[in-house]
């Protein structure tokens, strides 16, 4: 009996030990690359690689150089314009469509839902040449509206699915009782259901907003002038040329993107956890 208790104690100890060991090891693996990137932003001198050493001279000059020597400020503004317009339009479109799919039974509903699922798997990349030709025809190279439209359209199928899934979690009895009270289509949508899906709307807004900050391919392909590119494309030029590495400038620029986005991310984190699972289960 005593022995059994003892062995149980050691096995609990071991399981606790390995659990914490795993979590700490994983934390180190996660933090290390982020930390050495971030710390490079505050190092003076011309460094060519990220590394962890605390003997360097610390400085804020890199941030200053970023705005005086490069077009970083312009790029940041460009990205904000593209991201904001993408966010507003995309959220509006998918909210409307998701509501229609969740609440109405109309001709072609099922077929078009499957169509969404299929079209969602075609990579945006698939039509790169077509985008280019369209841009030529419309004079839309270097134009933010065109890029923004491509982001919006590309995000519609998957996000409409997720939005529909979330709308499905709002009980239908709500609409029915509102209908009995004489509320019209628009009022039921706007005043009764919409306020209840705010968490999901916040999540979708964040994702749509983050997209242009992270996209590289389309932006690089469609924006050609140095003063028109987005921040991702711009930062890549700092680090892609082996002869002319501006690693500390890259790091400084990266911090100015990553910090605000991460803060938004953690603020909305609770919402998208529920959004994800409910969207997934109800399909």
């Amino acid at each position: 009996m005593k022995n059994k208790l003892k062995s149980q104690k050691t096995s609990t100890f071991l399981s606790h030990f390995f659990t914490y060991a795993f979590m700490i090891a994983l934390s180190i693996i996660i933090i290390y690359p982020l930390l050495i990137t971030a710390s490079s932003a505050f190092k003076s001198g011309n460094i060519t690689a990220f590394s962890l050493d605390f003997n360097a001279d610390w400085t804020l000059a890199n941030f200053q150089r970023l705005f005086s020597e490069t077009l970083y400020g312009t790029w940041y503004m460009n990205t904000l314009i593209v991201a904001t317009s993408t966010m507003v339009v995309q959220v509006a479109l998918i909210t409307l469509a998701g509501y229609a799919y969740s609440r109405y039974n109309f001709m072609g509903r099922k077929k078009s839902l499957i169509f969404f699922l299929v079209i969602q798997m075609v990579p945006t990349m698939a039509a790169l040449t077509a985008f280019y030709v369209m841009a030529l025809l419309l004079g839309a190279l270097d134009q933010f509206w065109f890029l923004s439209m491509l982001y919006i359209g590309g995000g519609i199928p998957m996000n409409t699915w997720l939005m529909k899934g979330y709308f499905d979690t709002v009980p239908k009895e709500l609409d029915e009782s509102a209908k009995l009270d004489g509320a019209g289509h628009f009022r039921i949508f706007w005043q009764i259901i919409l306020p209840l899906v705010r968490p999901m709307i916040a999540v979708q807004a964040l994702w749509a907003f983050m997209g242009p900050f992270g996209d590289f391919m389309l932006a690089r392909f469609l924006l050609r002038s140095p003063e028109k590119i987005t921040v991702a494309v711009g930062l890549q030029t700092f680090i892609s040329n082996p002869q002319n590495q501006k690693v500390s400038l890259f790091a400084a620029g990266a911090i100015l993107i990553a910090v605000p986005i991460s803060i938004l991310f953690f603020m909305l984190q609770k919402n998208f956890v529920s959004g994800l699972t409910s969207g997934g289960t109800k399909g």
Binding site: V89, A127, M134, L150, I156, H185
Partner: peptide, 25 residues
Amino acid sequence: GFPYLLIVPAYLMMAFTIIFPVLVT
């Protein structure tokens, strides 16, 4: 037609940015 009114904007956008380019490709 209310549900159609709701989905038409999304479809127009997709027609321009997905369906049409994919056809051209």
